Simulated scan of single mutants.
Amino acid sequence: MPWEEIGALLGMLAAVLGVLLLAWLFTRYLAGRAPGLGGFLPGRSGKLQLLERMPLGREQALVVVRTGEKILLLGVTASEISLLRELSAEEAAAWDSETQAASPTAGAETPIPFRDALREVLKQRKK
């Protein structure tokens, strides 16, 4: 009799783990397809394109977004989105992966790393 109870308990445990695994897989699937930040993937085509995202804290991030021809540096928190600045053409070229992939030239300037661009923005804001 105890072996039957142990078998039933293991069966129920396996069923619960299976349901949890399926729920996790389903949410991962939905996150890639849903509009908004869950489905906001780098390289996505459309009018709005996320070029880079850098988390700063639990609910804070810096985001570089392309909107048509403009590239914007945004501060994102749980309660608001703030425009920090519009990037110049030179700064925007660092995040313009389409331009870099389409015309790789030997004499081209190296793109500015995100960290360095962020430092420049913070220096300019202090002035």
Rank of each mutant, 00 (worst) to 15 (best):
S45L: 11
E109G: 08
A94R: 01
R115L: 07
K47P: 07
W24F: 07
A89M: 12
F26L: 11
L51Y: 02
W24R: 08
V121Q: 10
G36D: 06
L84S: 00
P35F: 04
L41M: 14
E109F: 09
M54H: 15
G11H: 01
E69A: 13
G7R: 05
G68N: 00
S82D: 09
R125P: 04
E59W: 15
F40P: 00
E86C: 05
L72F: 04
T67W: 10
P55I: 03
W95M: 12
A106Q: 14
A34G: 05
W95R: 05
M12D: 15
L72A: 03
G18E: 02
A92N: 00
L51V: 03
P113L: 02
T105M: 12
G57H: 00
L13Y: 07
S103Y: 13
S103M: 14
A8M: 07
L56T: 01
V121D: 08
V65G: 00
L10S: 07
A117D: 06
V121N: 08
K70E: 13
A106M: 11
S103Q: 14
V121A: 15
L10E: 13
Q100R: 15
E69R: 12
T77A: 06
S82H: 13
P2I: 14
E69M: 08
M54C: 15
R28D: 04
A117G: 15
G75A: 03
R66I: 04
K126F: 11
L84C: 02
A102N: 09
R66Y: 04
M12Y: 13
E90I: 11
Q100C: 05
L17F: 08
G43Y: 01
L37D: 11
G39N: 03
L72N: 02
Q124T: 11
K126T: 10
G38V: 02
P2Y: 14
M54S: 15
A101F: 06
G7V: 02
V76S: 06
G46E: 07
A102C: 06
Q100S: 06
E80M: 05
S97A: 11
Y29W: 09
I71K: 08
G38A: 07
M54Q: 15
L25C: 02
A14M: 09
L51I: 04
R119M: 11
Q124K: 13
P104I: 04
A89T: 14
A108V: 05
L21M: 10
